[in-house]
Design a protein around this nucleic acid. Sequence first.
DNA 1: ATTTAATGTTGTCAATGTCAACATGAGAGC
DNA 2: GCTCTCATGTTGACATTGACAACATTAAAT
Lengths: 208, 208
Amino acid sequence: MTYHHGNLRKSLLDRAAYVIAEQGIENLSLRALARDLGVSHAAPARHFADKNDLLHALATEGNDRFIAYILEAADATGSDPLVRYNAMGKAYIRFSLLYPAYYRTITHPDVMTHADAGLKASAERRSLVIHDAARAAQAAGWLADEKTEDVVLFSIATVRGVSAMLADPMNSRFVEDDDELITRMVRLIIDPQHPERNSLTPRKGAAT
Amino acid sequence: MTYHHGNLRKSLLDRAAYVIAEQGIENLSLRALARDLGVSHAAPARHFADKNDLLHALATEGNDRFIAYILEAADATGSDPLVRYNAMGKAYIRFSLLYPAYYRTITHPDVMTHADAGLKASAERRSLVIHDAARAAQAAGWLADEKTEDVVLFSIATVRGVSAMLADPMNSRFVEDDDELITRMVRLIIDPQHPERNSLTPRKGAAT
DNA sequence: ATTTAATGTTGTCAATGTCAACATGAGAGC
DNA sequence: GCTCTCATGTTGACATTGACAACATTAAAT
């Protein structure tokens, strides 16, 4: 039993991710974390100024992992922009299920509201990756007449909602096969097989 | 200053709704609530067994208000199932902005996970209203070949996501006109003016 | 080898949720 | 109108938590 832990910072982040995945962000306690790792209750303060600071670090790491995961999924499908965007949508949802701690942290309003510079930067990078992919898909004909901001908002909104549904234990009874459901949901956003659904013909002068 | 408050239960719920709207569920404190209302810190316990119990009451009230709000919006548009469903989608998002406290409470995972019987029942009613409307829209031709579960999940996911985006201060800079954005987003779910987008199955004789 | 600063500990404080014991008074039953 | 009951509110206490200050230990730079 050494006086110095050796790698407390990383251990705290890992353990926090585990606890968040198991019990949610609300039930994360710095003191409990310290107890779990066998250090004193004030030890975490040497690595994270406060609770939010730890969550910011976790969120920054989460954003980077997210970007890598999404891009890898897109690259695995080839170069067709519609297929890539579809794959990214599915990867988005899968990431939220695979790394619930990171996902919850990067989407937690309270965490993101007080984000520090590093976290903000990583969030921007994440946003950029999606925007670029959406623009490419639009250039290839998907919802070509819509604002990119709109289709990105629509896409993210939907996958985010599906993620929330799948993560919500209340809805788990409806879901028999995650993968199949994810495929069907994302197909409703962008369906590379059915280009005719991918365009909204603008109505001349029609009131919405 | 009377010893008995007179209407503490309702006052607590109202004040809680205010605080949640202003500072979020995480920052709700029973003791602060009691202070605000000029009663002792243990007074709330006479009306709510614990913090979750208060949130459950708020959520039940929220579900009922939600149902009323959505149905009123649908009724205001007439009897066309597609138009009604579209209106309900827009109303969903507007409700989340108009009554953030109720909305946050009825969608808060931790609150809903430990829901009591009354809250669960109100959640079922809410779900039923949407399912019925979706079935009607499908019967009228919208995504007729999809499972109702799927289209409901897709719809709710999207409006829920849009609500999250609009409620997130981080995204507020993108939004100039809420109403217009909501209209465009819901149109991407169900567009009564463009039935051709409403089916994933190619029309007979159309090239795939 | 000495010094310094990073890392961990102990002790403390205010705030919170929750419980138990006690106080008050509104309203039912007579 | 009077009494008594019990719903409602209060006071006090306890454990937990995040945060801070003062102190202890040791890794690492010089």
